[in-house]
Write a protein that binds this DNA or RNA. Structure first.
Lengths: 185, 185
DNA sequence: CTATAATTTCAGTAATTTCTGAAATTACAG
DNA sequence: CTGTAATTTCAGAAATTACTGAAATTATAG
């Protein structure tokens, strides 16, 4: 089976970018294929389209499932597993951000949390600890904000993004009076 | 030369996380070491602290410079290059985000831009193209927003983050009347 | 149950990435 | 210039990661 030039280009691009995104080529290609396909696909079809081994596809699909980037699906009278990408690209984006946070940020945050707790006397160590504290505080602020943003509904978020820097004006207006550091609601 | 247990832990963690962040172990370790160090360091010192080859350090430093994560520095009466991490962790964060966007997002965005322009007749291709359009629009919105956020001053950004979801209330209040899609200032 | 289809696991191999040490280049003091 | 220190380059070695094909496991139709 052969892919159309359009889909092929998309698939190959995702394969190449894979390494920059921390996934391997095949996983990137599988995702691109499933994402762009009008129907859900089974593992044999994927292996044939991409010309890779069936076992490689199996491993790739497991990886994509662990990222919640593909959904399993079944068809009546067919016991094979079919895969499809969630429709809503916003949802995909959020899932991806969440997963990346969990894998790329959270472990570092706990490491830092522990490190800044340690009582120290050595001057150089204290400097290092101060730097870690700065990094910790920044990450904590950013991820805390991220968690709240995730709780917003899509419409608000879209509005916020479309407003762009105009939000600055709104905030300046609203914050006159020093509510900046006030208690949470 | 030996690292203190605190710094060692930090350095090793960054080395391990490196692969998840798309950098190699040594680069991660070099950065952690420079970031936490009270003084700038030269390549020989780094090689000795981390027990890796001088050439490996040279390559790692080039990589970090390409990410603008370390600054070159000189000392009077010493012709060696010394390296230090920018003080401001916010600045570091922004630099990092900018670089990642450039390397991980922009190439995909241009690929998608081209793909959605193509005139097509085949039904499956048109479906694929529609999916690419969705992905393109989302990325464009998100990166456009990101660009604007980058233009905000730090204080506003911090305020925004500290406000968290309360910003939703402010927006709801301010937006009654349908200014949502209005012209830019 | 038994037979077969579907999927997963995994040991070995292939491909890629990282790292080293030697050689080449660059920078500069004398 | 010349000599030496500092840095970079790069070919090959080492380590890691990705992929395959065969075997094992799981699922289910009959």
């Amino acid at each position: 089976m052969k892919l159309s030039p359009l889909v092929l280009r998309f698939v190959l691009h995702f394969g190449e970018m894979g390494s920059r995104w921390g996934i391997n080529r095949t996983v990137g290609q599988i995702y691109a294929l499933i994402f762009s396909s009008p129907q859900s696909l089974n593992a044999d079809e994927i292996a044939e389209y991409l010309d890779v081994s069936r076992s490689n596809v199996s491993m790739g699909l497991k990886e994509l499932q662990s990222w919640s980037l593909v959904r399993l699906e079944h068809r009546v009278g067919d016991r094979r597993d079919y895969f499809r990408a969630p429709e809503d690209v916003w949802q995909i984006f959020q899932t991806l951000a969440q997963e990346r946070k969990k894998r790329e940020i959270d472990p570092t945050l706990s490491m830092l949390r522990e490190a800044v707790m340690e009582p120290l006397t050595d001057a150089d160590d204290r400097h290092a600890q101060m730097r870690m504290q700065q990094m910790h505080d920044l990450i904590e602020l950013a991820t805390g904000w991220f968690a709240e943003v995730q709780r917003m509904d899509q419409a608000t978020l879209k509005t916020l993004m479309k407003m762009g820097s105009r939000v600055q004006k709104v905030l300046e207006f609203k914050l006159v009076g020093g509510t900046t550091k006030g208690a949470k609601p």
